[in-house]
Every structure is written in C-alpha cells, then in structure tokens.
Write a protein that binds this DNA or RNA. Structure first.
Length: 588
DNA sequence: GCCGTTTTCGGCCCGACTGTTTTCAGTCG
C-alpha cells in the first residue's frame, strides 16, 4: 500500500540499491538502508508521523531523507529518487525484495534477461535460468527465496507472537544441551507487531542445539544452518532464527540479539570510544583501530555486566530503540518504568449486562468480571459497558436502564468487599463533541470512558475539536483508545495531539493506554510526547470476555515503551488518590 | 546521508553463513 511503512522502506532500499550499483558513497548507502530498516520496524505508521511533524524522531532519518519523504507524501514521488532509480533496469528494484537477492545478484539477473519476478519464477522452474548462465546452487537458493515471499504473512500482533514463542521455547528446552533459552529481538522489546521470532540459547554444545532446533516439528524449510546459528520457516509461514552461545558470554548474546539494530550500532560506537569492540561474544580490547583477533575478550555473563563495563545503566529492553536511552543510561538518568505488578485495577471492561443491543456485549457477567479482578489482585475494577444509544432508546428508557444496572453493581459491591467496584460506561463522542448520554443518566455513574467510534476519517480540525470538546465535559473521565488506530487495518486519526495533550493535562482527564491486541493505543511515541505535557494515563484492557483481562501486560509494555513511570499511570495509584480524578463520584 | 558534552567536519558496528572467482564478495541480522 502506498505510504505504508513497508512501501516507504522499500522505496529507500531501492534508492540504496541504485546508489550501490552506481558505485556511490558506501556510507550514504548505509544511511538509506539504515533509515529503511528503522521505518520498516517502527511502532507507528510513518504517514502518521509525517502528519504529526515527527519524521525526525525515527533514528537514522535526518534532514535530507525527511525532506524527500515530505515530497513523497505530498506528491506521490520524489524527483531526486526517480533520477537515481532511472539509471538501472526497473526490474532490479523488484528482485531485491526476494530474500537472498541483493543489488549485485539483481543486476546479474537483469543482465541475463530476467524481466520480472514472474519471469524469474518461470525460468527457474523450467531450468532455463541455468542455461542463461546462473549457477545451479544460486538458482536453488533464489527458488527458496521465491517460496518465502509467497508464504510471508506480514507482521503479526504481539500477543499472537508470544503464544507461538512459548511453544518453541518449550521445544528448545527439551534438549539436554540447552542451558538457558530466551525469546529475543522485537518480541523482548515488546514491539506491537513482530516479523520474525528470535531465540538465543546458551550451551556448551552449540551444534547439538542447532541440530535439535532444525528438527522441530512443523519445519517447512531450513534457510540457513551453521555451527552457532540457524534460520527456519515453519509450515505456518513463521520465520524463526536461533543463535547459540557459550554460557560465559550469554549476556553479550542476549544484548546482541535483543537489539534494536540502531541501539546496537550506537552502543558499539560508544564501546569503540572506550577502546572496546562489542560483538555477541563480548567486549574486546582494540589496539590502534584494529581489533586483536586473539586479543583479550571480556566475557559478559549478564547484560548488566556488559552495560556496566561501558559505564552505563542497563536500559530496559522495551526502550532500546536509540531514541535517547543510551544518552540517559550514560548519565545514569534512566526513568524507573511502570511494571505490571504496579497495576491495581482495570476500568474498561465489557460485561454481558443487557443495556444496548446496538453494540456487542461482553461474554462474562459483571460478577465473573469482579471475581477475575480479585484473582488478578486488583484493588478496583470498573464496569464500562457500551452506553445505550439515544437513537434506539428514549431518554427515559436510558435512565431506567442505567438505574437498573447501578443497582446490580451496588448489590455486587456488597457481596464482594475486598475489591472496589465502579459503575462506568463507555460513551461515544458525537460528531459535535458531546457525550451521547443525557446528563441525568451521567449523574448516576462513577466515571466514563469516552471515545470516538464513528467518523474516523474526519479532518484534522474536526477530530481535534471533537476530542477537545469532550475533554471539556465534567462527565468525561478517560479518553478511550485516543488515536483510533487498528493495527494492520486502520491508521490513527489525524489530530492536533499537542493541543489535546495540553487540554487533557489541564482538565485532569486520563488518556487511555488500551491493551487490546490490535489497538495498543495510545501509541508509545505519543505517550512519550504526552508525558512532556504532564498527561496522566490509565492502562485498560477493553476486555469483551473475562479471559481478555489478562491482556494487561501488553498495555503495560506500550506504556514502558513510551517511557512512562509508575506515577504517570493512574491505575497504579491508591483509590484515595485516584478518586479525586473521578469527578462524578460523590461517595468516598 | 547521519550525527555530535572530546567533533557542524570527519568520522561512520560486528560477525556468520553461502557460494565460489580457494581468499573473497554478497547477503543477512
């Protein structure tokens, strides 16, 4: 899709390829590839960042690439890029999308007459490509690459990746040669979507572990296999990488494979400044710019060892994106991020209480939700069913429904004294910014979760005004899923976030960090920006079944990626502090 | 092209695996 992260990353990779083939500056090529990589793996849509004027926040995207991307988003093309790309056959930029094919191989293929990916496929299947001069082995390798792009599923949601990783971890640990095993990469950094699954293992016998790994049930293809690493593709299309190292240097291995790439590159330059060369084996002393092959290696058993030798704190994996964490760690100024165990409750929970047939109900009863809250160790839970719509009910009917529901909740509160049960509703923000529940009904509630559920494509001005108006209501408590994005489905709204954050902080309105797997909204980069305005958050699960209440860790990880600390998150507070923000609540 | 409390000029991360041109270039993470 034009303008998507994948599309922009492809464009920049093509430019890097064009410069490579024109024998351009090596570092310029690297800069384009590096920017492409950061964009491909960004947690937010690049188009959103452009609209919000935040392109420069992406590591590796400097002034030049920013202005080219401006041009790309405004006009759909970049003149400078077109002239670079035009120097080589267009098919090259298609071919480099195939794993295993880089600029050099793509150029070779174009020279022997390959016209398109389909053409390549046909020539490989018929064996014609070998007659044209390609080696048999390379032909096979490219054939495997072609199979891979067909089965490639795109990036998966974090919780799904988690469940898959668990199964693989279980299998890995069956080998007696596996001492420790950890899922790493973007999974450990808790990125909202995951491309591949990465695992590190410590072992005294790496090749035995590699052997065990490639024999995992459901392996469709072995893409690479060496002494200490291997890559496989499962029947499901899932791509899994393994890296094995000695127990003595497991810390260095964890660090290396956790990334991100930009964090690692920056870290290695910090190491070099200290006369040390950093790799997955540990740190090595460097003499006059050249590393000593047989020189002394400082093994790092843990990540803490490694970062300590570099004179810094260990940044939590979630913030290793080279967006300032290294600088902060060097001056021992990392924030103490919020933890799952700090969470004392959940305020966005849908029950099966029959209140409005125009929305989907939750599947659990209010009582089951309360019991689950107690099981999770919560001090408070808020029930927030969708409000009855004014169109389908009269004002009087709505009032009756809400009175009836209030009574049910009060009875349950009497029954379950160990947890505070709050009576809330999730309410639509109408197109004029008003809340779609009449005032006499609102007065019966303890709090509200207000959000936009229709008209996502409104203009920046109209969406901003709509949200700002809602934030002025004395009955609004929490702004639900603030950007409205659905990962892989729908982009964020275009809105003036600075203005929204300013007013949310001023009016003491919580912004939600929604833990629902395809929402994870507010996004991490906007959380970090909102914190500068003094905004406070509530992390909710938006559960539509009791089982979904365990999704809280994903919201917490988004908060951590946004550098939020415990005090920034309302539902880590004691009720006596929190209730001051629940302005509708009259009782103590 | 990116980046900066040792630099706005002058540096720029590290290693494994693959295939082949048996000492190295290409590709990848």
């Amino acid at each position: 899709m034009k303008g998507s992260n994948a599309d922009v990353a492809n464009l920049l990779k093509s430019v890097a390829t064009a410069i490579t083939l024109s024998k351009g500056n090596f570092f310029e090529i690297r800069a384009y590839n590096s920017a492409a990589d950061a964009i491909e793996h960004s947690t937010s849509e690049i188009k959103d960042l452009w609209q919000e004027g935040k392109l420069g926040d992406i590591p590796g995207v400097g002034k030049s690439i920013q202005s080219y991307l401006e041009e790309y988003f405004k006009t759909g093309k970049v003149k400078h890029f077109d002239s670079l790309l035009g120097r080589h056959p267009a098919v090259i930029y298609e071919l480099i999308k195939i794993p295993g094919i880089g600029p050099a191989t793509a150029l070779d293929l174009s020279k022997i007459g390959v016209k398109s990916i389909d053409d390549l496929k046909e020539k490989i299947e018929s064996g014609k490509i070998i007659k044209d001069g390609l080696s048999e082995k390379l032909s096979e390798k490219i054939g495997r690459g072609l199979l891979e792009i067909n089965s490639r599923t795109g990036r998966m949601l974090l919780p799904y990746a988690f469940s898959q990783a668990e199964k693989i971890l279980e299998y890995l640990k069956k080998s007696k040669d596996v001492i420790e095993a950890s899922p790493l990469g973007s999974l450990r950094r808790m990125v909202v979507t995951i491309g591949d699954l990465d695992f590190a293992v410590s072992s005294k016998n790496p090749s035995a572990v590699v052997d065990h790994f490639i024999k995992m049930p459901g392996v469709k293809e072995i893409q690479g296999q060496g002494e200490s690493k291997a890559s496989i593709v499962l029947e499901s299309g899932l791509h899994v990488d393994l890296l094995v190292g000695e127990p003595d240097s497991y810390g260095a291995l964890l660090q290396h494979f956790t990334g991100s790439k930009h964090h690692n590159v920056h870290l290695r330059s910090i190491a070099l400044d200290k006369g040390l060369s950093l790799s997955e084996y540990g740190l090595r002393k460097v003499v006059s710019g050249k590393s000593l092959e047989s020189g002394e290696v400082i093994h790092c058993k843990t990540e803490d060892n490694l970062y300590e030798i570099l004179g810094m704190q260990t940044p939590p994996p979630e913030i290793r994106e080279d967006t300032g964490e290294i600088e902060a760690a060097l001056i021992k100024g990392l924030p103490g991020l919020v933890n799952l165990k700090d969470i004392k409750g959940d305020f966005h929970l849908h029950s099966n209480f029959p209140i409005d047939s125009s929305h989907d109900y939750g599947t659990g009863s209010p009582e089951e939700i309360i019991k689950k809250g107690i099981e999770l160790g919560y001090k408070y839970v808020g029930l927030s069913d969708h409000a009855p719509a004014l169109g389908t009910h009269t004002k009087e009917e709505i009032l009756k429904l809400i009175e009836k529901r209030k009574k049910v909740i009060q009875e349950l509160q009497t029954k379950y004294k160990s947890i505070r049960v709050l009576n809330g509703l999730e309410i639509d923000i109408a197109s004029d910014g008003s809340l779609t529940v009449p005032e006499d009904s609102l007065k019966l509630l303890d709090y509200t979760v207000v959000g936009i559920h229709t008209g996502h494509k409104g203009s920046k001005e109209s969406i901003t005004k709509r949200i700002l108006t809602a934030l002025e209501s004395p009955y609004a408590t929490i702004l639900a899923h603030p950007t409205g994005r659905l990962i892989n489905e729908r982009d964020s709204y275009d809105a003036d976030w600075e203005e929204i954050f300013k007013i949310a902080a001023k009016n003491k309105k919580f912004l939600e960090i929604n833990s629902y797997p395809n929402r994870l909204d507010l996004r991490d980069d906007l959380i970090r920006m909102a914190l500068k305005f003094g905004v406070e958050f509530i992390i909710n699960t938006d559960s539509h079944s009791v089982e979904q209440m365990v999704n809280m860790p994903f919201g917490v990880s988004v908060a951590r990626r946004g550098w939020a600390t415990k005090k920034d998150i309302g539902n880590t507070w004691d009720w006596k502090d929190l209730r001051k923000w629940f302005t509708i609540t009259k009782e103590s």
